[in-house]
């Protein structure tokens, strides 16, 4: 985290265009201009809070009528419920359904954080490693602890591929162990990287829009990227959730 080089500034020199693609990710206090301490209410706090509000609106207020024939918001809530429930059931099996509320929490949070981040001028909480790494670490640590609690030392059988030839097994075990510990890294970087990349690219195109000659193309490109980002916002939440389910399945049934 060296501070001397300002890449963005160098990139803009000579062209007259101003690129600040990373400025949208700055965390700043919501009230006043103080330092960002541990409990400071920042834009992160605001958009996390809005995610809670959105989830409450959909999942609690939307279903408050408990109608047998559902209203629109209630069917969306039921759709989300059924989607994640089926995913957990399909991937981990019946005994994974105990952990369904945790996985539902992850999915709802990521989906709403991603979609709220697509509102112009908003702050995307899931674009920060400080948000996705704790999410992925929570999954990783939770799944590992669960695996050892459920299976005891038998959980290590996950790394011992019994279907492979005996000579290959130690090598495969090393690879499996490495890939196991890479999991939280790829899990978190995939989410944050995708979201950050999309937002930064949109910002770069927005920088080109200042140039009158290319501004129509740039606005068209922003529109196209935005459509792609809507897709990515959902798919990344889906992928994060389904990978959580896959890791959970490994913890519950470690034998290959």
């Amino acid at each position: 985290m060296a501070t001397e080089t300002h890449g963005a500034e160098h990139a803009t020199e000579g062209t007259g265009l101003v690129f600040h693609p990373m400025d949208q990710f700055i965390v700043k206090p919501l009230f006043g201009h103080g330092d960002v301490g541990l409990f400071t209410i920042t834009n992160v706090t605001l958009w996390l809070f809005l995610a809670i509000v959105a989830i409450v609106l959909l999942m609690v207020v939307g279903t408050s009528r408990r109608a047998i024939v559902p209203s629109r918001s209630q069917s969306v809530a039921e759709l989300a419920y059924g989607f994640v429930y089926k995913m957990v059931e399909d991937v981990t099996g019946k005994d994974g359904l105990k952990y369904f509320p945790y996985i539902m929490t992850l999915f709802m949070f990521i989906v709403f954080a991603n979609f709220l981040g697509l509102i112009p001028m908003s702050f995307t909480t899931t674009s920060h490693f400080a948000v996705t790494v704790p999410l992925a670490l929570a999954v990783f640590i939770g799944v590992t602890v669960l695996g050892f609690v459920k299976n005891g030392p038998g959980f290590l059988g996950l790394f011992w591929v019994s279907s492979a030839p005996l000579a290959l097994r130690p090598i495969l075990a090393i690879i499996e162990v490495i890939s196991y510990f890479v999991r939280p890294m790829s899990h978190s970087i995939r989410l944050a990287g995708n979201v950050m990349a999309g937002h930064a690219v949109i910002k770069v195109f927005a920088g080109f829009a200042a140039l009158a000659a290319v501004s129509p193309i740039s606005i068209l490109a922003i529109t196209a990227m935005y459509g792609l980002e809507v897709l990515v916002a959902f798919i990344q939440a889906y992928v994060f959730t389904i990978l959580t389910c896959v890791y959970l399945k490994d913890a519950l049934h470690p034998s290959h």
């Binding site: 541990l38 920042t42 992160v44 490693f129 400080a130 944050a192």
Partner: peptide
């Protein structure tokens, strides 16, 4: 008011976000 480097890697904010 511009970011220096990647805001994602700024250690000052991690505690607050987490």
């Amino acid at each position: 008011g511009s970011a220096i480097g990647m805001p994602q890697l700024c250690g000052d904010w991690v505690g607050n976000q987490v």
